[in-house]
């Protein structure tokens, strides 16, 4: 009798597994299996239109190919550039907006809500809207420039190699600056007033107060926003696809538009998955970087933020 467990004890021992099993099953089917499957396909010559190629193991050939592919590296570099410009612009503009709103005494809440409007639109629709605004023939922008007599050229906003990327960045910034503005405003609301006053009495000009007191206090909030936004921007696809489709001639091709083209247009899913894994590593790298900065900024503020 002593060697066999009583049925009650057996049941008791099994209960945790039973209760956890739904969560495990969901995780396995929703996360683990697709992950393993996509990782597996990145080592095959899988083509969407020929399911049998799923078993065509090619080892690291996909990875070798993309690492040797100049177009991939250009898209990779352009994504980083896109991210760097968009994040910096959003930070500076968001900071400006937050500082302005912090100064007003009436209607802060309303403005904060209004600020979020751009985020409530689908990126696809924002893309369409800006595609219309930037259109060289019928676009609102050229029309306005011409009517105001500033320019009489039909500036090809979405066709010129530099302007096209700039236009997309503009749309992205328009849509998401409020992420920074809202987080930085939250930081400003949470900021104690005393150190600012102490600094003013200590001889600081308004700029010095901002530089030495306000900005260090806000940096943790800025890095939270950067972490969120770097994940967001690194996977940019919809807005680009709608506005330029990665064109003209691949000049606005970012990682995910390239991946979508390879995977769905060219049906080379295996290679697309390999690219996707590289781009995920890029995203993780950015997140890690900003998170490290966030932790450092928090420590720097001595737990005040």
């Amino acid at each position: 009798m002593a060697r066999t467990k009583s049925p009650y004890k057996t049941r008791l021992a099994l209960t945790p597994y039973l209760l956890l099993s739904p969560a495990f099953l969901v995780l396995i089917f929703v996360v683990a299996l697709p992950l393993v499957f996509s990782l597996y396909t990145s080592f095959t010559g899988y083509r969407l239109v020929r399911p049998d190629t799923l078993w065509n193991w090619v080892g690291t050939r996909n990875y070798e190919r993309i690492f040797a592919d100049l177009d991939f590296w250009i898209a990779f570099g352009r994504t980083i550039l896109f991210l760097a410009i968009a994040l910096n612009l959003e930070f500076i503009l968001g900071l400006g907006i937050a500082l302005l709103i912090n100064r007003i005494t009436w209607g802060q809440r309303t403005l904060r809500t209004i600020m979020m409007f751009p985020m409530m639109f689908s990126p696809i629709l924002v893309g369409y809207q800006f595609k219309f605004i930037f259109n060289d023939n019928i676009g609102v922008l050229n029309n306005a420039l011409q009517s105001l007599g500033i320019s009489d050229a039909a500036t090809p906003w979405l066709v010129d190699r530099y302007l096209a990327l700039g236009s997309i960045i503009f749309a992205e910034v328009w849509m998401s600056t409020s992420v920074f503005a809202i987080l930085l405003l939250a930081g400003l609301f949470a900021m104690p007033r005393d150190p600012i006053e102490a600094a003013r009495v200590d001889g600081c000009s308004p700029w010095q107060v901002f530089r030495h007191i306000t900005l260090p206090f806000l940096m943790p909030f800025a890095f939270i926003a950067m972490t969120i936004r770097s994940l967001d921007v690194a996977r940019a696809y919809d807005i680009v696809d709608v506005m330029t489709g990665g064109g003209p001639a691949g000049r606005t091709e970012l990682l995910w538009t390239l991946i979508a083209r390879v995977g769905y247009d060219n049906a080379r899913m295996g290679q697309a998955n390999a690219m996707a894994y590289v781009s995920i590593i890029l995203s993780i790298a950015f997140t890690y970087y900003f998170f490290t900065k966030l932790v450092a900024a928090r420590r720097y503020m001595g737990g005040a933020a």
């Binding site: 150190p195 006053e197 102490a198 001595g302 737990g303 005040a304 933020a305």
Partner: peptide, 12 residues
Amino acid sequence: SMVFQNYALYPH
């Protein structure tokens, strides 16, 4: 110079 109730030290 001024001394504040909440000390108002610069935390960083």
